[in-house]
Computed example of a mutant assay.
Amino acid sequence: MPPDPSSLPLPLPLVGPGLTGFATGFSLILAIGAQNVFVLRQGLARRHVFWVCLVCAVSDALLISAGVAGFGAVAQRVPWLETAMTWGGAAFLAVYGGMRLRAAWKGEDGIDAAAGGPDPGLRAALLACLAFTWLNPHVYLDTLALVGAVGAGFEGASRLAYGIGAATASFVFFFGLGYGARLLAPLLARPRAWRVFDLAVGLLMWALAAGLVLR
């Protein structure tokens, strides 16, 4: 005998909005960006992976909640906010990209050498993680504007289910990326592989920084 729909933990009418939120959030966060590359690198080095993933996911959840609640319309009334975030984010990406290019120039023989080097510590990792999240104008576009715009089509409990679905996508993605990164360890354990990875990351950070100020 099929279960009584009224006895299910989540009412069936809310499953659709929840799945819509999950699909919307996951599709937006899937694109390669500075935040994702940082999480990937932490996962490869196996440093503070849980806390980095948690900070990214919780930050996204807070921004998604604000977007679903309609904060995007409020943010549009502060014209200087986008400019400040753009230049602040570009400066941070340029500096971090320079650090990675410097590491590539010095050279590190694979993951073991990189992970065995000096660890800047949990505090430094979390500060960098927060900067990648909160100084990135694209994060606000994705969460406050795009996720919020789709969520505006729902009302009441359906909007709540949509927001929960979108926030859940962030947790699934970041923890999957952080802990799944170790699957690439055999590849990056090869000589000079980590050096090439740092070079690619550095160039990507500079490209993203240029994209912010030239758009």
Results as ranks from 00 to 15, higher is better:
residue 22 F to K: 06
residue 24 T to F: 05
residue 27 S to H: 09
residue 27 S to I: 12
residue 28 L to F: 07
residue 28 L to A: 11
residue 29 I to E: 14
residue 30 L to M: 15
residue 31 A to R: 15
residue 32 I to S: 10
residue 33 G to P: 10
residue 34 A to L: 09
residue 34 A to G: 13
residue 35 Q to L: 11
residue 36 N to T: 11
residue 38 F to D: 02
residue 39 V to A: 12
residue 39 V to Y: 02
residue 40 L to Y: 03
residue 45 A to P: 01
residue 46 R to V: 10
residue 49 V to Q: 00
residue 49 V to C: 05
residue 52 V to H: 03
residue 54 L to D: 08
residue 55 V to Y: 06
residue 57 A to P: 03
residue 58 V to I: 13
residue 58 V to W: 07
residue 58 V to M: 10
residue 60 D to L: 03
residue 61 A to F: 06
residue 61 A to E: 02
residue 61 A to V: 03
residue 65 S to H: 06
residue 66 A to W: 04
residue 67 G to D: 02
residue 68 V to M: 04
residue 69 A to G: 14
residue 69 A to P: 01
residue 69 A to S: 14
residue 70 G to P: 02
residue 70 G to Y: 05
residue 71 F to L: 15
residue 71 F to G: 02
residue 74 V to D: 04
residue 75 A to W: 08
residue 75 A to V: 14
residue 75 A to P: 00
residue 76 Q to L: 14
residue 76 Q to C: 00
residue 76 Q to V: 09
residue 78 V to C: 02
residue 78 V to S: 00
residue 78 V to M: 13
residue 78 V to I: 15
residue 80 W to S: 10
residue 83 T to E: 08
residue 84 A to L: 15
residue 84 A to I: 12
residue 84 A to N: 09
residue 87 W to R: 00
residue 88 G to L: 09
residue 89 G to A: 03
residue 90 A to H: 03
residue 91 A to Q: 01
residue 94 A to P: 02
residue 94 A to L: 13
residue 95 V to M: 08
residue 96 Y to A: 10
residue 97 G to H: 01
residue 98 G to S: 07
residue 98 G to D: 01
residue 98 G to P: 00
residue 101 L to W: 08
residue 102 R to M: 11
residue 102 R to V: 08
residue 103 A to R: 13
residue 104 A to G: 06
residue 105 W to Q: 12
residue 110 G to M: 07
residue 111 I to S: 00
residue 111 I to L: 14
residue 112 D to K: 15
residue 112 D to T: 14
residue 112 D to F: 09
residue 113 A to Q: 13
residue 113 A to R: 11
residue 114 A to C: 07
residue 115 A to G: 14
residue 115 A to H: 07
residue 115 A to S: 13
residue 117 G to P: 04
residue 117 G to S: 12
residue 118 P to V: 10
residue 122 L to S: 03
residue 122 L to N: 01
residue 124 A to V: 05
residue 124 A to R: 14
residue 125 A to D: 04
residue 125 A to Y: 01
residue 125 A to F: 02
residue 126 L to F: 04
residue 127 L to Y: 13
residue 127 L to M: 12
residue 128 A to V: 10
